[in-house]
């Protein structure tokens, strides 16, 4: 795959830094150094309120991570199934998967969140955080499904034919030949979805889930330090996503080993 195609693959999110972007003054470095500096300097220079905010908010970081990790794991499973469903030759499976994707894509995440939260609340009483995870993964599973589908379809059909001709059935072909290669194409957009999902978890703060944003809002409404609180929250999100995007880009680079001569 050429560099050109790879850049297109990453898609509109483009949160992942270009692996060649190693210069001292890359945008990523400037952003990271700036973020860390501010997170250190502000609390030192003005402990009240910055240091107080930093002591209050981090409880929410773990909640944000919990929701993110749980949702992405579920979304990956749903996504794989949906992606396979979307390329299935079985008409009903295909229709069901496509319908799911269409419906989810047509409804704003925030509305889905409310909807699932309250719809679920009528049937069973689940903890808020569980409702949040279900809603997030239901939504992101559909996007993930499209990512998987595109990844699988990007693999030359000759690979499938070679595998079938050896005696592998379709399921084995998918598991041993197609998915291991598709993963390479799938990883950058999955990485972007992961980061997008992490940021979108801020929406669950309206469902009484005590994530970073909610903790911040609680602090701000007591202390009235709105500006300072949201500054710190923005910086914390930025630090997390900057680190994650670097990790993902390194992983992507490692996975492409067999494409290098």
């Amino acid at each position: 795959m050429s560099e050109q195609e790879k850049i297109i693959d990453i898609g509109d999110g483009a949160a992942i830094p270009d692996p060649r972007d190693k210069g001292l003054f890359s945008a990523w470095r400037i952003a990271l150094i700036g973020t860390i500096s501010l997170l250190v300097i502000l609390p030192l220079a003005k402990p009240d309120p910055y240091a107080k905010i930093l002591r209050f908010v981090p409880d929410g970081i773990w909640v944000t991570f919990e929701v993110t990790i749980a949702s992405i794991s579920l979304a990956l499973i749903i996504g794989l199934l949906t992606g396979l469903g979307r390329i299935s030759k079985n008409r009903y499976i295909n229709l069901a998967a496509s319908l799911y994707v269409e419906v989810v894509r047509g409804i704003p995440l925030l509305v889905q969140l409310f909807y699932i939260y309250f719809a679920l609340g009528r049937i069973v009483r689940v903890p808020d955080i569980v409702a949040a995870v279900i809603a997030m993964s239901f939504c992101y599973g559909a996007y993930m499904g499209e990512v998987f589908r595109a990844g699988i379809k990007s693999i030359d059909f000759g690979q499938t034919e070679a595998s079938l001709s050896l005696g592998f059935n379709r399921r084995q072909t998918m598991a041993y030949v197609i998915l291991p290669q598709a993963w390479r194409t799938i990883l950058p957009p999955v990485g972007n979805e992961f980061i997008a999902l992490l940021k979108d978890t801020s929406l669950v703060s309206i469902l009484a889930v005590a994530d970073i944003l909610r903790r911040g809002r609680e602090y701000a409404s007591e202390s009235f330090n709105y500006f300072e609180t949201y500054t710190m929250i923005a910086l914390i999100y930025l630090l997390i996503t900057l680190v994650l995007s670097k990790l993902i880009s390194n992983m992507e680079h490692r996975l492409s080993h067999y494409e290098r001569r």
Binding site: G158, Q159, E161, A162, S165, Q181, R184, Y258, E259
Partner: peptide
């Protein structure tokens, strides 16, 4: 039945 293709189709990974 072994099969050999014009475009080789070796498993790239």
């Amino acid at each position: 039945l072994g099969m050999v293709f014009q475009s080789f189709n070796l498993f790239k990974h």
